[in-house]
Design a protein around this nucleic acid. Structure first.
Lengths: 242, 242
DNA sequence: ACACAAACGAGAGCAGCGCTCTTGCCAAGG
DNA sequence: CCTTGGCAAGAGCGCTGCTCTCGTTTGTGT
């Protein structure tokens, strides 16, 4: 892809990396909305206008950070799930994924704010970011699907089934992206699996957002243990067990 | 409290109200982080420095907006719960509260971003905001507590009870704030009620945050119906029913 | 009724921001 | 060798939050 590694190309690569690293560092201290291109320019000891040789605008820099962060978070979730050798132990895969997602988010609060916080006013995420953004929920769908395929079911069939006939949210999701690896599910089970996994991902995100944005300061003393409790509660409500 | 309603005090009240309204309008269009004091000054046709007569800083203006928004959201939740005449129909109270919270958040996305989005970099919410911020979860705690007191229980007692011995999150919450109205619960049930309600509030927030911040665009077609499904699912998992 | 103090609006000014444009330098390729 | 193009630097535009000063208006105690 780059056969002619000229000195100029190499320098460009290095400086681009430096800019991204400085931007991510400032993301953690100042927040995404207040990310100052001039500040990162000072960090890498350049004049602000010189940075525009590498990123045409502040939004382009944000997009690069966005894609990088989504990739890291998705990779953390996927490798955590893949790290459980006993693939039938869906409960262990579930908990490992939850913990890995939290670990990355807690380690990178600035990037978390960029990904899931208030959208930057004038900025709209390009199409390139929607696919890496769905990697975490795809892992959860896969785990729930595996558990369902292995016979796991929620403890009770609730009365909520009455509403599934009127509306079918979360179905365009699975229709558009082929994110199921387990075809051993009936047409009735598949939407329910997707719905449940999406709800669980939403709940996981809610816990992390509350923790990282400081909404649990007075109520939860140990956020790590709290997330474990939420993960186990969701797993129990989904019928996932070893 | 103010027997001498001088013309100046009246004018101050009116102009303060105008500033707050303009700020809330700009909150919806520009976002909380980009809220410009100069812009609201132009809206109310004043010089920027004149606004400082009413709010000593941009942070103080944000705090005023924060308290006002928390109050409105809390009032929406409380009045929705109180609007259900049959107090024993905890399922109806549950759903009404969820819908009211969503209605307010969807109607005020800018305020939602201020309350629950990325924290404004240099800004730290003062102590005055923690109490109004807990009004929604207090409503949920009360509903779950009423349901439990009436005999409702989760369908299964899950294995997650093993972890409750090691850590006790969400207990300082109920210890510090006296937010229970139902004393008909044992010492074992009380923490579980608080935990469950806090998890439900977290899940509700996650759904709203995903919807308002645009993370459901490709996956959920009807957010209103989706929130109903989540509410019913949570109620079923909690054992809440009419 | 008068005077003093507080509150107020307006304006200038400071430092910082994103971004654009121009200028001059230096490496890469024909 | 010499032209092309990437590169850093600087000036400049309009914007931001905030501070200070100035002259005016308003409320109040004597």
């Amino acid at each position: 892809m780059s056969p002619a590694r000229t000195a100029r190309a190499l320098a460009r690569e290095t400086i681009t990396r430096e800019i991204l690293d400085s931007a991510r560092a400032r993301l953690g201290t100042d927040g995404a909305a207040a990310l100052s291109l001039r500040a990162v320019a000072r960090d890498v000891e350049m004049v602000s206008s010189a940075v525009y040789r590498y990123f045409p605008s502040r939004d382009a820099l944000l997009t690069a950070l966005l894609i990088e962060a989504y990739g890291e978070l998705g990779h953390a979730a996927e490798s955590a799930d893949a790290g459980v050798t006993d693939r039938s132990d869906t409960a262990a895969r579930w908990l490992a994924t939850f913990r890995a997602v939290r670990r990355w988010c807690v380690a990178h609060p600035g990037e978390f704010g960029l990904l899931y916080g208030t959208p930057v006013p004038g900025y709209a995420a390009p199409r390139d970011t929607v696919d890496p953004a769905t990697r975490v929920v795809r892992v959860l769908v896969r785990i729930v699907g595996d558990a369902y395929a292995a016979g796991a079911r929620p403890p009770v069939v609730p009365a909520a089934a009455a509403t599934t006939g009127t509306v079918a949210p979360a179905l365009a999701f699975i229709a558009e992206h082929g994110l199921m690896a387990e075809p051993d599910l009936s047409d009735d089970e598949l939407p329910e699996v997707v719905r449940r996994a999406l709800m669980a991902w939403t709940a996981l995100f809610g816990v992390l957002s509350f923790e990282l944005f400081g909404h649990l300061v007075g109520s939860v003393t140990d956020p790590e243990a709290w997330l474990d409790q939420v993960a186990l509660r969701l797993a129990a409500d989904l019928g996932i067990q070893a």
